[in-house]
């Protein structure tokens, strides 16, 4: 089998400020990986990166999508949103940097650890953002 062939693919729509469903897409991704027998330490890293990215859409953007793909070698997440984008990506990547409002902080978010946490848990991570338009994250976690 070709190493790049897609074994599974699913798209999830995420809505900004929708706390009724926030996190459910990442839980589905996690459960899928569990069902097909992916190792705990790997599926946990995927779940954490996906969840932090999903919450960033909910907290900061209008709407977005998570494209989830599994190949024989890795799990790929492409997380795209339409939203305010990030002016200074390098700054946003710093541990503790957050523009979260008081309201967001009261919900337990806004520690400024989301993007750093994604970077830490991913084997490959690219973030691109266009202020006024949106943000795109490409995340890969290798299966071994």
């Amino acid at each position: 089998m070709n190493n790049n062939s897609v074994l599974f693919e699913e798209d999830f729509k995420i809505k900004g400020w929708d706390f009724t469903n926030a996190g459910e897409a990442s839980l589905k991704i996690k459960n899928y990986l569990k069902e097909v027998g992916i190792a705990e330490n790997i599926l946990k890293r995927v779940a954490i990166t996906s969840y932090e990215a999903e919450m960033n859409i909910v907290l900061y953007a209008k709407e977005g999508t998570i494209n989830f793909k599994v190949t024989p070698k890795k799990v790929l997440l492409e997380v795209k949103d339409r939203g305010p984008g990030i002016e200074d990506v390098e700054l946003a990547m710093k541990e503790g940097y957050s523009t979260a409002t008081e309201e967001i902080r009261n919900m337990g978010f806004g520690a400024g650890m989301g993007l750093p946490n994604i970077k830490k848990n991913a084997d490959m991570f690219v973030i691109k953002s266009e202020p006024g338009k949106g943000t795109k994250l490409n995340i890969e976690v290798y299966l071994k």
């Binding site: 706390f19 926030a22 996190g23 946990k44 969840y51 919900m107 337990g108 978010f109 520690a111 650890m113």
Partner: peptide
């Protein structure tokens, strides 16, 4: 009380003590 602090650890089989009671605590 910070969800990112919860996510920073391997919590498998663990107990979380928290002052937050929203749905996000549960999802996290």
């Amino acid at each position: 009380d910070l969800m990112s602090d919860v996510l920073a650890f391997q919590n498998k089989g663990g107990l979380l003590i928290t002052g937050l009671i929203n749905i996000q605590v549960l999802r996290t």
